[in-house]
Design a protein around this nucleic acid. Structure first.
Lengths: 217, 217
DNA sequence: AATTGTGAATTGATTCACAGCT
DNA sequence: AGCTGTGAATCAATTCACAATT
């Protein structure tokens, strides 16, 4: 019986979004530990830094078979490698952005995507007003996506245009949308959408805060 | 036996973050329907627009007792009112923002918060470089929070400063943090944190996209 | 002695399926 | 006839608790 499962690609299907988020977090923390020359880490420490319970961390890592050493902990470098192998994709992936309003043009400047392995290679808008990167007109959208085989798009257009632009993107071959609009997009089941609704997050936060304090006003 | 529960404040404690997100989405969609002069809406329609199953919508609304009419649907206006009453807070709530780098200064300009009932009343940074709104130095943080009884803060500082600044904010009385850094913050249990990790969202999306297609490269 | 790995138990969320109203 | 409201059933995620291992 093999220890570390070697048919990782076969396992890729069996993970929930929640677990995946956690794996990505573990990866980050591990990288930090690695840069600090840590060689092994116990589940308690890694879990605390990741904001989860140790049991949950261990359950998550069980996906990869046995990677830790009982009585000792997990080898930092090896664990990093195993998670990275599972996640696949290592090289820089091209992403386009649609809608260069306030939020859109800020995201173009935001360095975090590049650090995570994504390259915002082009931006599109109905208005071709010059921002920091060249903004292309929507008429070039289809050509660009097809020519560069783009899969992922960041959607920052106004609410009213959201569904329409999403439909367009999908028809040109985009299969993953990071949706910054506050619209709920209707898409075919083979298309992935992740919603980032900033106002919603603040509303949600506000509710739980006022709950803690006792009801205000 | 009363129909619509009148002890809403007592019910406020019994809702999960997931349910709360959905309620906030329903509220938005309802508002749109209301502006279109819809008087009643069936669970099937509201659910579809909200991206959930009708059964789930009905379960969620069960929190409020009986608000719909069997055979007919839900009265749009009344349902809006009931949800708003449950959520509490209606007036503009003041929020501060810390860290006016690319992302931070973009969020200052972003209109979505205001629309959702939040007012970004002040921004702070270690560098007092002039941006669109006046940026205050960190030395004024404590005074400002206390004087204006601020509860919520948006955290956009660099990773390395995140925990430190969070500790500071909490010590000055902040009880809710919208965390845009990629750090997992360690906070006391009476403090609420919502994480918005943009790179993580894109990584997550990318994984599920490449899963759909079959493994790339 | 210490810590992982994991079945079993628990808790939570979703979906089913139909009774109850209008 | 049609749609809501909801107990029951299912499915998913978390936590427990302890055996296995170094």
């Amino acid at each position: 019986m093999p220890n570390i499962k070697n048919s990782i690609t076969e396992e890729r299907t069996r993970v929930s979004p929640k677990t995946l988020y956690r794996l990505l977090v573990y990866q980050r923390i591990l990288n930090k530990f690695f840069l600090n020359d840590l060689e092994t880490v116990r589940s308690a420490a890694l879990a605390k830094a990741s904001g989860v319970k140790p049991e949950q961390l261990r359950k998550d890592l069980a996906l990869f078979g046995q990677v830790g050493t009982r009585g000792l902990g997990y080898p930092v470098k090896e664990l990093m490698d195993v998670i990275r192998a599972f996640l696949g994709k290592t090289d820089l992936q091209p992403v386009i952005l649609i809608g260069t309003g306030n939020l859109g043009s800020a995201l173009l400047k935001y360095g975090g995507f590049k650090r995570a392995g994504f390259d915002l290679v082009a931006a599109f808008d109905v208005q071709k007003g010059g921002q920091s990167k060249d903004v292309l007109p929507m008429s070039e959208l289809q050509g660009y996506i097809e020519e560069h085989s783009i899969e992922l798009a960041v959607l920052c257009v106004p609410q009213d245009a959201a569904q329409e632009v999403a439909d367009e993107l999908i028809s040109y071959g985009i299969t993953g949308l990071l949706n910054f609009t506050s619209m709920v997009l209707q898409v075919p089941s083979n298309i992935s959408v992740n919603n980032v609704d900033l106002a919603l997050e603040l509303e949600n936060l506000s509710f739980f805060v006022s709950q803690q304090n006792g009801i205000p006003s």
